[in-house]
Amino acid sequence: MGMMGAACSDPCASAPTPDTGDTVPTDWTPAALSDDIPVASAAPGQLGPHDLAIWRSASGRIAAWADRCPHRGMRLSHGFVRGERLSCIYHGWGYGEGGQCVRIPAHPELTPPEAIRVPVFSVAEASGVIWVAEEAPDGPPPEFPGVVAFRSLQVSAAPEALAAALGGTGTVIETVLGGAQVVALIQPLRGGAAGLHLLAPEGSDPAALDALSAEVEALRRRVEAAEEMTA
């Protein structure tokens, strides 16, 4: 496991223990890959029981907010990013730094009261992964030298079952898949599902990554079939 370096010699130290998705992990949880949320876009995410709107501003700033516009409860992840603001698709209410509402199009002259604010979560990027937490954890999220973000998939199986199929336990698993040395980050999702954020060796050629992709799809089929058998 030398290629991973010291940063993840004790992955459990910086990774949450698996849970059902109903409790909120206190440490960083992987929620998406950085490349999957480019500038000026938003995507839905999860952290325990919370729905998140994860978005990146035009200048590249990443943010993770409660996925709910305080006005009428519409999911903000359906919204649109202009400049440094995320706006709700329903009535166009715009939110800036710190989740503060800065614009209500129905009342263009109005300076929105400070009380109109979207709850904000902690977010950090490391090794091409977007990590989220409810309260800012003590340290930064883990770095994984030698690997780069590859693919995120959703698996309809418990995080523990997915970890076991990858030959490990917990939520950070270093293993060999399709002949490649990979890091698998497991995110507990609601409804007994798991997110799998896969990191692959830096500099892999497309054909090798195609093989890895096929391998992880096959692994998902096996885990889900086994889960269905036990259900």
Binding site: D51, D67, R68, P70, H71, R72, G73, M74, R75, H78, I89, Y90, I104, A106, H107, L110, A115, I116
Partner: peptide
């Protein structure tokens, strides 16, 4: 329709506080 299917909570809150209305 796609807005209506993505409001949280699904039920309409009747007590003030859960959602913030304006003059509109």
């Amino acid at each position: 329709r796609s807005v209506l299917e993505n409001q949280l909570p699904a039920l309409l809150p009747l007590d003030p506080g859960r959602e913030i209305p304006t003059r509109a």
